[in-house]
Design a protein around this nucleic acid. Structure first.
Lengths: 202, 202
DNA sequence: ATTATTTTATGCGAAACGGTACAAAATGAG
DNA sequence: CTCATTTTGTACCGTTTCGCATAAAATAAT
């Protein structure tokens, strides 16, 4: 895995650097972030940044991909099939909010929905990542819905595809509203409404 | 209303100019749009633009406000109380999609959710407009839900506040997914699911 | 006609932008 | 030790950015 390379070794951890870059992009968006800002945040000079990740768009795409991958991990964990569907959904929203409300200045919402959406028209690669991320999320939720139907956790005749997209819609709304500055209480209430909408009022 | 002013008259219509500027911001976002691009699109040189609207952020805020106002008009019209709730909601989503899918390159989604969300962290005024827009939309929908409950269009014990926010959530999802490139059919299916979720499966 | 007022057009200017050339530094290979 | 290789830091490149200074043009008031 880690063969020693020939030349001068890197003085930084690419993964850590990518996380720092993500923080900056998250707050400022892609177009609103300069290489100088990225350089300062990562404590790498521009040539090192360029050598390791390519140009600004490459770096942004990398950051998006990392976020997508992490998010899918969080989602899979929240959807632990040994728990009831209602609890699964509540966990999904709860963990999303923990991420969305983490911002220092104001809540940042979802990195993808909050920043990639804006670039999706002009940058096709960004749109591709965004689209794939939404689809992956939908797919994972839908799998859980199918399982719920098999187990009788949902009424007969329920359509897993439809339910998954409605559950995702609540997620998208949380993402936008968190970035618009809605309070934690407001967002938690919406999350609860989403759970009740899918699973029935408790 | 229109008293003749003293100096040299304007050679442009501010309202038309604002609409052209909005188109550019819609495709490229705030940070991704340069004054040169705006100048070319509006066929005004920068000083004229500056004199009429202020700096780039002022112009963007103006464009957002115009969109918000128009959207509320469209919403009020779609919610014509002489029609059943189910039809009202279907009209709301249908008209939203007509706007969201209007883009030339790719579908543009919602101007506010697609571009203002990205700037909401760094630009407080943008966040304020975004937040207010979401609230206004929620409020108008909630009013219609209350009416529906009075009329018996919804089950007893329905909570208009919750229903409004769920209906809005579907809207937010349409906004994001349109900009991510989802097909018209996919979006219309989600809209239909939203109507059924609120009003019951037909 | 003269003056005051407002808009238009050219063009400047300082700063920020993304990206890279180049040499020094740090490692492994031979 | 010497050389090839890779990363690092400085400095720079040409371009683009936003905003404005300035003067010409077009109108109303006097």
């Amino acid at each position: 895995m880690s063969e020693k390379k020939r030349g001068r070794p890197r003085a930084f951890d690419a993964k850590v650097t990518l996380e720092k870059a993500r923080e900056v992009f998250w707050d400022r968006g892609f177009a609103g972030t300069s290489l100088d800002t990225l350089s300062a945040a990562t404590q790498l000079n521009r040539p090192s940044l360029y050598g390791a990740f390519g140009d600004k768009e490459d770096l942004y795409i990398d950051a998006l991909e990392g976020y997508r991958a992490e998010s899918m991990g969080v989602l899979a964990d929240a959807l632990d099939p040994s728990l009831p569907l209602r609890e699964n959904l509540a966990r999904v929203y709860q963990r999303a909010l923990a991420i969305y409300l983490h911002g220092e200045t104001a809540a940042r919402g979802c990195f993808l929905i909050g920043t990639a959406t804006a670039e999706a028209i002009q940058h096709e690669r960004v749109r591709e990542v965004l689209s794939r991320s939404l689809d992956d999320f939908d797919g994972e939720i839908e799998k859980r819905m199918k399982l719920a139907i098999e187990r009788g956790e949902l009424p007969d005749g329920s359509d897993p595809h439809t339910l998954a997209r409605l559950a995702s819609a609540v997620m998208h709304s949380l993402a936008v509203r968190a970035r618009a500055g809605d309070s934690r209480e407001t967002l938690e209430a919406l999350a609860q409404s989403g759970v009740d909408m899918i699973c029935g009022k408790a």
